[in-house]
Design a binder for these strands. Structure first.
Lengths: 155, 155
DNA sequence: CTCCAACGTTGGTTCGGCCAACATATCAGG
DNA sequence: CCTGATATGTTGGCCGAACCAACGTTGGAG
């Protein structure tokens, strides 16, 4: 299930909070996460699933550690999510002959198809999320956030 | 304890993610949350504690439900956090004579002092967080996020 | 050959955000 | 006046994202 939380016209938050960037960031992110979760829920997926599928699509077959590093997901969490993806045959996991420590994770055809559905769904979510912003503002926001993200994730 | 996660120069994330606003938002928010949590941890506090103290300082004595509404914190969570704050004498909880369903929560002197410390700490965090942005950009970011937040929280 | 590093895996933890249920108290309508 | 809807505080849960420690296996560099 997924949170409902419709337009509950809440009273204004304290000014001290409303003017604190970190608060603005985490709150808007929370709203974004709600939208994403709600949309992915209909596809029986979560954020981690999409991230891994997207990475696999872009990188091609990769090890679990590599996937985790790319997506900012802990190795241990990658295991669990990959189990779920494999159970749905969206992904295949095979031992790497070249390095027997590794598993080579491969995107299946069904996986690629499912990724597409998720991507389409999420595209619509982005529009809902950014609804009040002009195209220019959307670009600005992306630029600013990218700058922050690059800065805070080791260059 | 608090997550460490220093500048682990991670490999670039998939482009599909890096260009998705909701992803940028949640990721930067995660970094922000780490910084905030780390800073507040030194004061033996969490985000919820700061939010409630800040709201109390701005609203004056208020009921728990009101506080929750203002801060976007669930009633049930307010109870727990208020217990912790009361245990440290940062806050006092008394039954409202005018409406016996309610508790009137009051900020103590120690509470006001502690709020100050937190606010100072968090001010420094904002600077760390926004380090790579010019003053102009910081303003822009604040503006954009505020717009989004207002839009998505019932006007 | 020996260590150390990397990998996958298991089994935890924390924090923010939720929901359901209940008892008590208030309040508005019949 | 009574009765039913509504608000409040409280308890006790749940979930997702993000972490961490530890273990056995495997690889590689010295």
């Amino acid at each position: 299930m997924v949170p409902t939380m419709e337009p509950t016209t809440g009273p204004a938050a304290p000014a001290r909070l409303r003017t604190t960037p970190s608060w603005l960031l985490t709150q808007t992110a929370a709203h974004a996460a709600r939208l994403v979760a709600g949309a992915l829920d209909a596809l029986d997926a979560r954020g981690y699933h999409y991230r891994l599928l997207a990475a696999l699509d872009e990188l091609g077959p990769a090890s679990q550690a590599e996937l985790g590093r790319r997506c900012g997901i802990d190795r241990s969490d990658v295991v669990a999510v990959l189990n779920e993806l494999a159970a749905k045959d969206l992904v295949r996991r095979a031992p790497d002959p070249a390095d027997r420590r590794r598993n080579v994770v491969t995107l299946t055809t069904a996986g690629r198809r499912e990724l597409r559905r998720m991507a389409d769904t999420l595209d619509r979510v982005q529009d809902t999320l950014l609804a009040p912003l002009s195209p220019t503002d959307r670009g600005e926001l992306t630029r600013l956030l990218t700058t922050l993200l690059d800065h805070h994730s080791g260059r």
